[in-house]
Amino acid sequence: MDKATAYHDALGDHFAAHAETSPYNAYTDRPAMLRLAGDVSGVRILDVGCGAGHYAAELAARGARVIGIEGSATLLRHAYARVNGQAGLLLHDLEEPLGFAGDASFDGVVCALVYEHIRNRVQLLGEIRRVLRPGGWLLVSTTHPTADWRHFGGSYFSHDWRDLPIGDSELSIHYQRLSLETFLGELLAAGFVLEQLIEPRPTADLREIDEAAYDRLHQVPSFLAVKLRRP
């Protein structure tokens, strides 16, 4: 991920703190992805774009052997603190091949809310397929296409790159809009087989903390999450 898309410096610090308790991250995307992963005891997992280590820490706590890779040194610093030695972490530009990993060296790959930030997705998917064992699974979550359409307007089928402001801060995240057709089409063209697709809604715990956010996220989709297999 280049300077425009990776969460460096102040953006990385903000995201690390925000993702800890955010209705979107902590109560919607992360629980959904962990449910899709299922029983991971003893499973070798590559966390692609591991961010501040939230997913890696959860997966490791459930018995997985996790390697997390991240293009932002800022986020990786947070990840080291969070996983506390329970997962391996590596600074790696996701626009580059996964040269550190051998063929069929992982049972599962997690790619949570990073896919839309990658420019060379064809290369990344090819590399993920290479490092997955036959029968291994890939979990990918992304911004829901209709959420982007509602926010930015214009054509639903737009593939333009956008900057999304974060709250009242001067920070923004840079990513590409993807239609459902494009998102699934790229994954299938890379040789994966779709096993499950969900539109995550927040867990019941959020209702006790932020009822308005709970109600909103049960009415307006924010993410897509898919589970695929490598034949």
Rank of each mutant, 00 (worst) to 15 (best):
D2P: 04
D2V: 01
L11C: 08
G12H: 10
H18I: 00
A19I: 00
A19W: 00
E20S: 06
E20K: 11
S22N: 08
N25E: 11
A26D: 07
V40N: 06
S41F: 04
V48E: 07
C50R: 04
G51M: 05
Y55A: 15
A57Y: 03
L59R: 02
A61S: 15
E70I: 02
G71I: 00
T74H: 13
A81T: 10
G85K: 08
A87T: 00
L89S: 06
L89G: 06
H92G: 05
S105M: 03
C111E: 02
Y115K: 04
R119T: 13
G126D: 07
V131W: 05
P134H: 07
S141N: 03
T142Q: 04
T146N: 05
D148Y: 05
W149T: 04
G153Y: 05
F157I: 01
F157P: 01
S169C: 10
L171G: 12
L171S: 11
L171R: 11
I173S: 14
I173Y: 12
Q176L: 02
E181D: 14
L184T: 04
E186F: 09
V193N: 09
L197S: 09
L197M: 15
L197E: 12
P200L: 03
L206P: 08
R207S: 14
I209N: 11
I209D: 12
D210Q: 09
E211R: 12
Y214K: 06
D215Y: 01
H218V: 00
V226Y: 07
